[in-house]
């Protein structure tokens, strides 16, 4: 079943057009990777889905219903949670409060509780009373992921969770992915790190300059196809 779909999605920042008719789908239980160079429009795509950037012409569908004109809080309450680019923890909140706030409005029953998140990222249990922003980058990323999980989302959107982190830290964070997948959420991972993205994804989209340039199963896609889609023919 298709949970999420964009149809000819366009997005603008003032006069500047960042997306030119993007079509992507996400099925129940599936993990999809969206890769692309810096500025390709990946974050803009996620912002359009979450309602931070609004569009009004039925270009984003959740379970077949148009959600593009809904405010972000309404979209989130439908079960679409976001791990935003740059983690965006709340500086005034402790680690535990950052986690709790993720699940305080949408209180869906499901596998994710405070304890389950602490089991997924045990270091956070130790640091539960520290201000979220006092943690290392990798730990902050764990909080951002846990915060999104706390609402037991049907769809989890992850924007560059490896950005700016050391390889060993990225490995730790990606080690949690199988358990998140197993909990039932459909996942979109946006990445510049192609290898990481392909390691967890069922399907992959590549974006370039606001357009989807490749759509393929992750297991069989060739390096050449990705290279062309990522950098363009001229590269």
């Amino acid at each position: 079943m298709i949970l999420l779909e964009t149809k000819g999605l366009t997005a603008n920042y003032g006069q500047f057009r960042a997306l030119f008719g993007v079509d992507v789908t996400l099925a129940a239980g599936e993990t999809v990777a969206i890769i692309g160079a810096n500025g390709a429009g990946k974050s803009t795509l996620l912002r359009s889905v979450t309602g931070i950037l609004r569009n009004d012409t039925g270009m984003v569908l959740h379970r077949g219903e148009p959600i593009g004109a809904m405010p972000a809080e309404t979209v989130m309450q439908r079960g679409i949670a976001m791990v935003p680019e740059g983690r965006k923890l709340f500086p005034s909140l402790s680690v535990e409060e950052n986690l709790k706030i993720g699940g305080q409005v949408r209180k869906a029953v499901g596998p994710w509780t405070l304890e389950a998140v602490y089991d997924l990222f045990p270091i956070l249990r130790e640091k539960r009373n520290v201000p979220g922003t006092a943690l290392s980058g990798g730990q902050q990323q764990m909080v951002a992921i846990g915060r999104a999980l706390m609402s037991n989302p049907e769809i989890l959107l992850c924007d560059e969770i490896s950005l700016g982190l050391a390889p060993v830290v990225i490995r730790d964070i990606y080690a949690a992915m199988p358990r998140i997948k197993a909990s039932g959420a459909a996942i979109i991972v946006v990445e510049q790190d192609i290898g990481r993205a392909l390691s967890v994804a069922d399907r992959v989209y590549c974006m370039m300059e606001g357009r989807v340039t490749l759509s393929a199963p992750a297991a069989t896609v060739s390096r050449e196809a990705i290279h062309t889609a990522y950098f363009g023919d001229a590269a």
């Binding site: 309602g51 972000a72 706030i101 993720g102």
Partner: peptide, 12 residues
């Protein structure tokens, strides 16, 4: 702290 991120938590 951050109203946009708060809206991603379902808060209006």
């Amino acid at each position: 702290d951050d109203p946009v991120t708060a809206s991603l938590m379902g808060i209006a």
